[in-house]
Write a protein that binds this DNA or RNA. Structure first.
Length: 770
DNA sequence: CTGATATGGATTTTT
DNA sequence: TCCATATCAG
């Protein structure tokens, strides 16, 4: 028997051993959340609950597997039979048994991101939308809007009104496009991410038999990361926990509202806040002692939350006194940031194993420089959150065969196979799909005409369908068939790609049903080889780092426009999400936390380095919370006395490199640079406020109240063109920051707003920079 | 219609 | 650098 009281603190113990009824565990970062779930699983098993009756919904399959593994270890025996994984994967496993009526017994396929884009593009072309109209949103943008509308359960025009004001004229077209995309999926037996959730909800509501059976089977439901569920996910949990008119059964939701970072995907913090209302009779348990981080790390994290616009009433505490101060490092440029981080990692490697070190960043491409520097230094790394290798063309090619085998109506897969043959473009695909679908062998044969290669592919697939084999044998046969093409398509690196495909076949051998393997591939990147992680440090986006922890964490590119992302500046709620993201990033660290805020970034468009300001999250940190280091000449880091300077330090070198030909540089000293700093008073304002104020200014007069000019994010920027008397950038109340392309008249300018495209705007609505 | 070439523009986060 | 769209020749 396990001694729960010994192994857990009081709150954890209460959670792990709680009896029947709904429970909400509010678990601060590093408060032993995973440990609590693991002991909960073990406790249930020890108290006679069959693993079959447990459902563990987590953010990734890996998280579920790890918890089950650890619970199994505690019990000194495996804990097999527990259903565990993401909402989406769970939905798929249910829906393949209880198919929605509209499928009428046809097979169905789960679409991945590329399929969704292709499908929307197809519908867009079909409806002849946006042809020659530059103001019409790009396919990617449309995909995002449609998904947002469904995830937030708002009509499309409402989404436009809130987030993409300028697209309102296209509201009707976009709605039609959305409808066309809906029919596309239904006709072809396809489901996207959102469908999986909504169809499961529909099943639980409309199919009494299925609902009753699922409720009976899953008597104990655990949901991790509850703060990142969206509305439909919350309803699914409620419906699984019992009929809505009855009392909810045994549900335990675990989460932390301060770590909600998926609102952009429709996650709703209200879910966790309203849990007790939604599940009457809830017991709320709070875990507030932090076991992960040292005090200095926690102080920085707590400070971030303290500056939040909406307070979280959260203050994590630790008994781990002492520990190194958090470092705030100012490299001269992004290039030297990479070098400094590499040096720092070499230093950290003396005390820590590689897998205990991570570098985190806001967006996948922020790590490119660092990746190159690490390669040069011979330091191995594993990157999370970038492009997945299952998204590589050759993998998708092979999987397309398997998908067609299961679902002959899968148009994206059909197109994928067809496109491997020269002479077949979108139009021909359309034609061939129509005849192949009609099922008339004679006319099909005729229509394929000279496209004999493709016809052979189809024959191959049909043949394969008549011979049931294991998933891995099927895929092996496909690879055999595809191999000659692999070699012609990728003459340079086909051996490597082939090896990758063989690994995938290996992974498939763990599956009995091919459709489950395909769904898993679309829903989640398969877990990496454990040997692959060995001896490697981790690079990760903050989103992908959720739930993980390391001894030492470096966060890079902590500058304006990167972290927080420049897309998050327009609306205060987006800005607050960035703050929580920063909180998540900092709380990943156990002992060492380094913050890097380079003084300049290389800018492709400008072909030079540009000064950038520190992230507001860095600027707001009290000087005593960090130990400041600054890079001087020759890449030498030196300590700066605490509080010696408030703002971002200038990089004289960066300025000098920026535009050597544009104009003679001003005297390269810091005093000269200080003139460019933001007014001290504004800099001290809480960033949440200063951003919403400066971004939402009234058209002509300066913002009410403050006498300061809302120079926004570019106080210290040096611009060649500006020096020649031309304005380069401006800020618009709705579109944000844009580049001025042309002065059309004294009052009109043409501006390019990233994400919004070219606009002609009256100057009075613009705030000019410089 | 397809496929090659030019051009222009920009770059979150993920199931 | 990389991607998407526009344009053009076969």
């Amino acid at each position: 028997m396990i001694d729960y009281a010994q192994a857990l603190n009081e709150a954890q113990y209460q959670a792990a051993t709680s009896g029947d009824g709904p429970v909400l565990v509010v678990a601060g970062a590093g408060s032993g959340k995973t440990r609590t779930i693991v002991y909960r699983l073990a406790w249930l098993a020890e108290n006679g609950i069959s693993p079959d009756a447990m459902l563990l919904l987590t953010f990734t399959r890996k998280a579920a597997q790890e918890m089950l593994h650890r619970a199994g270890m505690l019990l000194n025996q495996g804990l097999t039979g527990v259903q565990g994984g993401t909402f989406h994967a769970f939905s798929f496993s249910v829906l393949r048994r209880w198919k929605p009526a509209w499928l009428a017994d046809r097979p169905f396929t789960v679409m991945d991101a590329a399929d969704i884009t292709a499908a929307v593009k197809h519908c867009k072309d079909d409806l002849k939308l946006g042809r020659g109209d530059k103001s019409f949103p790009k396919t990617q943008t449309v995909v995002g809007l449609l998904s947002k509308s469904r995830n937030k359960e708002l009509p499309l025009d409402e989404v436009l009104r809130r987030e993409a004001f300028h697209l309102l004229p296209h509201a009707d077209s976009l709605t039609r496009l959305g409808d066309a995309y809906d029919s596309y999926r239904r006709e072809k037996g396809l489901m996207d991410y959102d469908d999986l959730l909504f169809e499961l909800e529909a099943l639980l509501r409309n199919n009494e038999m299925a609902a009753a059976s699922l409720r009976q089977r899953f008597s104990h439901i655990l949901v991790d990361e509850y703060q990142d569920t969206n509305l439909v996910q919350a309803r699914i949990v409620r419906l699984l926990a019992g009929p809505e008119d009855g009392p909810p059964g045994n549900v335990m939701a675990v989460g932390d509202e301060a770590q909600s970072i998926y609102a952009f995907r429709g996650a709703n913090v209200r879910n966790i806040l309203d849990f007790p209302k939604f599940f009457p009779g809830t017991t709320v348990i709070r875990l507030e002692e932090n076991y992960r981080s040292t005090k200095p790390v926690l102080d920085v994290a707590n400070s971030l939350l303290a500056h939040a616009a909406e307070s979280f009433h959260k203050n994590l505490f630790t008994r781990k006194e002492g520990g190194e101060l958090v470092r705030l490092v100012t490299p001269m440029s992004d290039a030297s940031q990479a070098k400094i981080v590499v040096r720092r990692i070499e230093e950290l490697l003396r005390d820590h194993m590689p897998h205990e070190i991570a570098v985190l960043f806001r967006a996948g491409f922020h790590s490119y420089n660092l990746e190159m520097a690490l390669n040069q230094a011979g330091i191995g790394f594993r990157k999370y959150g970038g492009l997945r290798y299952t998204e590589a063309a050759h993998v998708k090619d092979v999987m397309a065969y398997a998908r067609l085998l299961l679902n002959p109506l899968d148009l994206p897969a059909f197109a994928r196979v067809a496109a491997q043959h020269s002479g077949i473009g979108p139009k021909t695909v359309e034609k061939l799909y129509a005849v192949a679908r009609s099922g008339d062998a004679a006319s099909t044969e005729k229509a394929f005409g000279r496209h004999t290669g493709f016809l052979e592919d189809m024959r191959f697939i049909n043949d394969l369908r008549t011979r049931p084999m294991s998933p891995s044998s099927t895929l092996a046969a496909v690879l055999e068939h595809y191999r000659p093409r692999l070699e012609t398509l990728y003459p340079e690196d086909w051996p490597r790609r082939q090896q990758g495909l063989e690994e995938i076949i290996q992974m498939a051998s763990g599956y009995i049903h091919l459709d489950l393997f395909l769904a898993d591939l679309a829903l989640e990147s398969p877990e990496e080889d454990e040997n692959d992680t060995e001896g490697k440090i981790t690079l990760s986006t903050v989103h992908s780092a959720k739930g993980l922890e390391w001894n030492a964490v470096c966060i890079i590119d902590l500058v304006e426009d990167r972290f927080p992302s420049r897309h998050a500046l327009a609306r205060p709620e987006d800005f607050e999400e960035e703050r929580r993201l920063m909180y998540v990033a900092c709380t990943r660290a156990r002992q060492n936390l380094d913050l890097y805020a380079p003084a300049s970034l290389y800018n492709r468009a400008e072909r030079g380095s540009q000064h950038v300001n520190q992230s507001p999250f860095v600027r707001e940190l009290a000087p005593n919370l960090v130990e400041e280091w600054i890079e001087g000449f020759g890449g030498i880091l030196s300590r700066r006395a605490a509080g010696s300077s408030g703002g971002a330090q200038p990089s004289y070198q960066a300025r000098f490199q920026a535009r050597p030909l544009a104009r003679p540089q001003a005297t390269p000293d810091y005093a000269a640079f200080d003139d460019c700093q933001l007014p001290a008073e504004q800099e001290k304002t809480s960033p949440g406020q200063s951003f919403s104020q400066s971004r939402n200014f009234a058209p002509s007069p300066a913002p009410a109240g403050s006498g300061a000019t809302p120079t926004g994010s570019t106080g210290g920027e040096i611009k060649g063109d500006a020096a020649q008397g031309q304005l380069c950038y401006c800020t618009h109340r709705i579109f944000g920051r844009g580049k001025i392309i042309k002065h059309l008249s004294p009052e009109k300018v043409q501006v390019n707003f990233p994400g919004f495209g070219l606009k002609v705007i009256l100057s009075e609505y613009l705030l000019m920079e410089n």
